[in-house]
Simulated assay, not measured.
Amino acid sequence: MSVALTSAPTRISSRTDKVRVMVVDDSVVIRGLIARWISAEPDMEVAASLRTGLDAVNQLERINPDVAVLDIEMPELDGISALPQLLAKKRNLVVIMASTLTRRNAEISLKALSLGASDYIPKPESTREASAAETFRHDLIQKIRHLGAKARRGTFHSTASPQLAPGHDGPRATPGATTVPAAPMQIVRRPFGLLSPKVLLVGSSTGGPQALMSLVAEIGPVIDRFPVLITQHMPPTFTTILAEHLARTSRRPVREAIDGETVRAGQIYLAPGGRHMRVARHRADAVIALDDGPPVNFCKPAVDPLFTSAIDVWQGSILSLILTGMGSDGMRGGKEIVAAGGSVIAQDEATSVVWGMPGAAANAGICAAVLPLSQIAPKLVRVFSGDRS
């Protein structure tokens, strides 16, 4: 890397009508790529492009970004060390950790979430592969748009809906527009299904790892008596690490699901990154059926394949839970579960990092309950114990 590339003056944008993004990566190629993608979007701009975490910490107050895309491995000060310093200077800064897909970086990314990072994104090993680069671009832009718009309105982790992207949950808001808050939408709740649930299905995305950790720590009585199947939007390696973390938190067996294995109570099955997890009936047993088909709702694994396939196995004896996440994955499958006689619970807007997935389900009128995260585990325990009020 030439001296000119590493010491060139940082470009600081002064416009304030867009989501301002600070890109921090020691690779000039990655910085340039991300900067071009951001600059091509009408509702966001590059506030600065920096080489090290130390540069980011020292220049944060001058740049004042809404979002930081922070690489993990950098000279002088790496991403995990820079993260708490950045958040100490700007508490509502949205930090998206970016890293290559290794076990070590997956561990660090999950640790970063516990330290206050908003989300993570795996960088492709090579940006020369068109499909890998396009997936990276799509995911990164969506994360910046949803999380950044919420932060700009000062409502991150609060009650305001995130800005929505085309093809997801609704129309896009005008970037930077001043709007009068709308009256809260009246969410129609439906009664819980009449049949006792025999399985718990969970879908989650952005903010999901933190929510899942909180959830599994409190639903031991459910796990012990019923199978629990989870689809979290995550790439390979990350799901391996997440399963290990969930096992430690729940003190129950948790692992990535294996194709053909029998589904039993006392076990949490996590959809492996890069494959859809479905279930099927084999004689008297329910078995895992992994699917290497195309992405569903831009995701692989996706929630809808799990939800819809479960109906053939458990009919209406299903309780499904939709946690924080972008998009609307899980809503269509949830509709089918409700039509079969099952029930859906969604996380509420105030405690969701992004209220896309649970919001889509809630606004579709398919939920028996829409609850803060802290109230979901107690409710699940009561419902699986026979209380469906």
Rank of each mutant, 00 (worst) to 15 (best):
I311N: 08
I311V: 15
I311C: 11
D312I: 03
V313I: 10
W314K: 12
W314A: 08
Q315N: 15
Q315H: 15
G316M: 10
G316E: 05
S317H: 15
S317L: 03
I318K: 14
I318C: 13
I318A: 12
L319W: 01
S320Q: 14
L321A: 10
I322N: 11
I322V: 15
L323R: 11
L323K: 11
L323Q: 12
G325L: 06
M326E: 09
G327F: 05
G327V: 09
G327Q: 08
G327N: 12
S328I: 03
D329S: 13
G330R: 07
M331H: 02
R332G: 00
G333V: 03
G333S: 11
G333I: 03
K335S: 14
K335P: 00
K335N: 06
E336Q: 15
E336W: 01
V338I: 13
A339V: 04
A340S: 14
G341A: 11
G341D: 06
G341S: 10
S343I: 11
S343R: 10
I345H: 08
Q347A: 08
Q347V: 07
D348P: 02
D348G: 10
D348S: 10
D348W: 01
E349Q: 15
E349N: 13
A350T: 14
A350F: 02
A350S: 11
T351A: 05
T351N: 03
T351I: 02
S352D: 00
V353I: 13
V353S: 12
V353M: 13
V354K: 03
V354P: 04
G356Q: 09
G356N: 07
M357E: 05
M357A: 09
M357D: 08
P358Q: 11
G359Q: 04
G359K: 02
A360G: 02
A360P: 00
A360S: 15
A361V: 12
A361D: 05
A361P: 00
A361M: 09
A361N: 08
A362C: 06
A362N: 03
A362L: 02
A362D: 01
